[in-house]
């Protein structure tokens, strides 16, 4: 029981990651793929932040009376990772816009038919 209480957080996060991953793989629409990618990445962020948590601790900004702070390092990492995520999203969406203009569709199976796919 204790084991479950200690780890349920991770398990749900894993579930979330896999949800995102599944969307990326199966989505036929490119926009949805990007959404899936974001869900996937966001879930990974939660994993990191979960690692950083210290029970009974508080946010890592010095304040009077607090002695136990959560680990600031994962926060820093995830700040960076979020930025990376939004950068990738923007590029992906820009690509989708261009694909739509070039092919008239953003459904994967449709433009696969148009060009002899490799």
């Amino acid at each position: 029981m204790n084991f479950i209480l200690d780890h349920y957080n991770y398990w749900i996060v894993v579930f979330l990651m896999m949800t995102g991953f599944y969307i990326v793989i199966t989505a036929n629409n490119l926009v949805k793929k990007i959404v899936g990618l974001n869900v996937f990445q966001t879930s990974v962020f939660i994993l990191y932040i979960s690692e950083a948590k210290v029970s009974g601790g508080t946010a890592p900004i010095v304040t009077e009376g607090a002695t136990l702070y959560s680990n600031p390092l994962p926060h820093v990492l995830i700040l960076t990772a979020i930025v990376v995520g939004v950068a990738v999203t923007a590029v992906g969406l820009a690509l989708i816009v261009r694909i739509k203009r070039a092919y008239g569709t953003v459904e994967e199976n449709e433009f696969k038919k148009m060009d002899d796919a490799i």
Partner: peptide
């Protein structure tokens, strides 16, 4: 474009 998108994903 499609190649780049696939690469991106």
């Amino acid at each position: 474009l499609i190649a780049a998108f696939r690469y991106l994903v």
